[in-house]
Amino acid sequence: METMSAIVVKLPEVFGAKAARKLGRELKNKVTITAPHIVIDFSRVKKIDLKGLEALLSCMEEVVKQDGAVQFGGMSPEAATLLELTRMNRLFEKFPGFAADAPAFELSPELVSEEERVEGSVQVPVTA
């Protein structure tokens, strides 16, 4: 079984334009490998606007270009409702699943050290 790294992205409570821009920057820096595995953690999310949704789509697009995969981590009921409303949940379901080591999810530290805690990302090992 091959072990590779996954990037856990922990989204903030409000995922709007500002946070979306930051996610774009972060992912650009982090997604340097081929076939990246991204775990998006929505457990804190209460609100997502169109800019946030666009950022998620861009993220998916980038990952697809590099033959990677995206899957949900934690999910708040608010985020689940918003993703269903916008049918984004169905897009996420299109990606092939990958298994992440359970302890890695429990770590889920945040690397955000900038002026606002908008999102964090950390590389964790996953098995593919």
Partner: peptide, 19 residues
């Protein structure tokens, strides 16, 4: 806003292009 009947939660959508 949207109130989800099964989750029993209210979600402020906050984007007039959505709701």
């Amino acid at each position: 806003s949207l109130f989800h009947l099964d989750r029993n939660i209210e979600v402020k959508v906050g984007d007039p292009d959505l709701i």
